[in-house]
Every structure is written in C-alpha cells, then in structure tokens.
C-alpha cells in the first residue's frame, strides 16, 4: 500500500528531459573550464615505474610514481580543471627521458610550488641546487638555509616535495650515512635506485 502510494508520488512529480539535463551539464562544465585553473598531465615509463607529471600555467606542479593514476590525480589542486594532454607536458617528459638515459644532469624547468609554505619552497630551492652524483645531509640543507638546527623540519619539508626527481630530494640523506627517508613512490628502494643511476652509491 505504502509503495503504491510512493509510486504515484514519483509519477506525479515530473522529471526534466534528458536533453535539459545534458544542456545544463554542458553549461556548468563550460563555466568550470572558463573559471578553474588548468592543470595538464601525462605519464611516461621510467626505471622507477610509470611516472606521472602535471603542469599548471606556472610550471611543473606535480611529479609522482609508484601510485595509481587516480591517486595521482586526486592530490592535484582540488579546484583545478584537469586534462590529460601529452603535448602540453612534452617539454617535461623530454627532459625526464634524457635524465633516465643518463644524458641530463640537471633539469631546466619552471616549477609551480605555490601550494607550499615559504619554508617548504626555500628547502626545495636549495635542494634543487644539489648536483647529480653527490649527496647532502639534512643538516647541510638546514645550514644552507641559515637554520642549522632545523634538520627535522627540513626532512619534513622534503617529505612534502610535490616534484620528486625534478627537485632531487633523493640526494639528501641522514648524517649517519643511512639513506634517511623517501616519501615518493617505492620508498627507499626508489631512492637507492635513483642514487645508483646517478653514480652516487
């Protein structure tokens, strides 16, 4: 009885046409594409597995590996409009391929670190200058910032590096000679692999 009544209610309440729904969806999607910042991404094969790369209007904003595609996309700027566009990311993938082939020692790429704190940005800027084939300790990075006691915050900032490999946080190790930590995909295994690739181990 109750169900028959509900059926009547649902019959009586009209539904919009499919065409109307589709038109409205297009209108909202068009507004979103006009309004939201654009992030374009692509994936390339690498010795550490599929490597995901995302680029905003300002520069490279995210690099990751050892993660699923949806996990990679879900951590991008939640307000952005995200599109798969290999051509827009080609200038980054080209340099990464050269790096993995041993033909490139440093990256010449604009970075978008705007979602990081000033402290995190500073840590990454210094880390960017560490040459391939060498390693620094967390303490050395802290000292270079003029904050010799900040080894731990430096380690934490490197743990939030959104562009690993491009900013070579794998070149920063612990003072006792151990590798320290690595939060990018594959963990310490990847860190060791990258350092071996560069001849630092």
């Amino acid at each position: 009885m109750a169900e028959r009544w509900l059926e009547e209610l649902r019959n009586a309440v009209r539904a919009p046409s499919d065409e109307g729904v589709a038109q409205s969806r297009r209108q909202v999607q068009n507004w979103f594409a006009r309004t939201a910042p654009l992030i374009e991404w692509d994936a390339v094969e690498s010795p550490v597995g599929p490597l995901y790369i995302a680029v905003s209007a300002k520069g490279v904003c995210s690099v990751d590996f050892g993660v699923t595609r949806s996990a990679f996309l879900s951590q991008l700027d939640p307000l952005a409009c995200v599109e798969h566009n290999p051509a827009a990311v080609a200038f980054v993938t080209a340099q990464l391929r050269e790096y993995f082939a041993g033909d490139r020692l440093r990256f010449d790429l604009p970075l978008d670190l705007s979602r990081l704190t000033p402290f995190q940005q500073r840590v990454l800027q210094i880390t960017r200058g560490i040459a391939a084939g060498t390693v620094w300790t967390y303490r050395q990075v802290a000292e270079a910032m003029g904050k010799p006691k900040a080894s731990r915050p430096v380690g934490q900032a490197l743990g939030h590096n959104p562009v690993p490999i491009v900013v070579p946080c794998h070149r920063v190790v612990a003072s006792d000679g151990s590798l320290g930590g690595y939060s990018a995909g594959g963990g310490l295994e990847s860190k060791r692999l990258l350092l071996q690739l560069e001849g630092a181990l």
């Binding site: 999607q29 979103f32 939201a36 996990a71 879900s74 991008l76 939640p78 307000l79 952005a80 995200v82």
Partner: peptide, 10 residues
C-alpha cells in the same frame, strides 16, 4: 580520506 576534487563533484 582521499581528497575530492571539485571537478568530480560536477
């Protein structure tokens, strides 16, 4: 929880 992107809400 996995962060939700606005685009997926649409």
């Amino acid at each position: 929880s996995i962060p939700v992107r606005f685009e997926t809400l649409i």
